[in-house]
Design a protein around this nucleic acid. Structure first.
Lengths: 190, 190
DNA sequence: ATTTATTGATTGACCAGTCAAACAATGGCT
DNA sequence: AGCCATTGTTTGACTGGTCAATCAATAAAT
């Protein structure tokens, strides 16, 4: 027995891959299940319905990203280093797969329809914002929230462009851009 | 006879409204047609298939936005003023309707599946980038392209957040954020 | 009379979700 | 060890509904 967690994980992985490949939420449970090598009935058995399967996939992506950030932040102490780690974590190879970016974009769409998806997105936004503010405040004081808003939006905007650039060269230039913006903001305040 | 352009416009308008209301591309041609007050068969008659109807809607949004930018730029002469106008135009009340933002987000998704949609998106990206570079270069020289990338991504990122903020207060704070980033970039170069 | 505008009815495909039944593992019980 | 009962795993077949796209037919305009 105890095969349930494994199947769930496989189905979640297949969901992300399938959404990434199709570039759309209009993938059928049948397609996902086929990719996972099981029948569609099993997916319904483990997740109840399609929405909850998608939600689980979104939660998984968020969890992986959150863990990555947590680890990155643990290995830095001064605010400036933590900000840099945070920015790099947002563009780490794990979170920047083509599939993951595509799924991410589609979860933004899902958040329009599903209150649960919106809640997850709000959690992500809040966590990013509070992480940024926490390390910006010692450097710039009350200017922190405004700067955090701009950096967060810039991260999302650059991330968004990954969804379309077919070549995958600019993985490091992405982080470089955000770091440059951070430099500018700090210089303007210091 | 001359009723064709009017019906097409009505259907396109209804498409944008419907996508905005549903927050998803999975709206049926029946729903769109009903909102436009015609039968679904007429929509197929004028647009051929669903994809081309969506494409036409996307093209329309892009055209309106482009026209807005063109007009805004015409009323300014110095580079700095043109940049400010360009930024304000990107967050004008016409282009920042809830429906338009939602449709925009969904077109980003559509661009994954449809080469035509991707082409339109590339046109928009290129035009925005070249507009920015054109007016940045006199101010900062060869640093222009990098700054343009960041500003463009920031605009998209802030735009993206509109898709979820249910309250519509921060319409002007959006432009203010981009202008602040512009200030920082110019100060860092000057 | 020919073209344009418009629709109701229909079709064929597809899909989310259900169900009953088959299959496998576990854990007593004797 | 052999034998039920229970519980977890897995599927094939089915259903009810939805939707894109077609078509034949009607009304209106030129």
């Amino acid at each position: 027995m105890n095969v349930q967690p494994q199947r769930r994980a496989e189905l979640i992985e297949a969901t992300i891959r399938e959404i990434g490949a199709a570039g759309s939420l209009s993938v059928t449970v049948g397609q996902v299940s086929k990719r996972a090598g099981v029948s569609s009935a099993l997916a319904f058995h483990y997740f109840g319905d399609k929405d909850r399967l998608f939600l689980a996939a979104m939660r998984h992506i968020l969890t992986v990203y959150g863990e990555e950030v947590r680890l990155a932040l643990a290995s830095a102490d001064c605010p400036r280093a933590r900000l840099e780690k945070l920015i790099h974590a947002s563009f780490s190879p794990t979170s920047c797969t083509r599939d993951v970016v595509a799924a991410w974009l589609n979860f933004y769409v899902l958040a329009h329809r599903s209150p649960d998806a919106r809640r997850l997105l709000v959690v992500y936004h809040r966590r990013l914002h509070s992480n940024l503010v926490h390390d910006l405040r010692p450097l710039v004081g009350d200017a922190a929230p405004g700067i955090a808003r701009r950096l967060a939006a810039l991260i999302d905007g650059i991330y968004l462009r990954f969804a379309h650039h077919t070549s995958d060269e600019p993985v490091d230039s992405a982080a470089a851009h955000v770091l440059a913006a951070l430099d500018n903001e700090l210089r303007a305040c210091g």
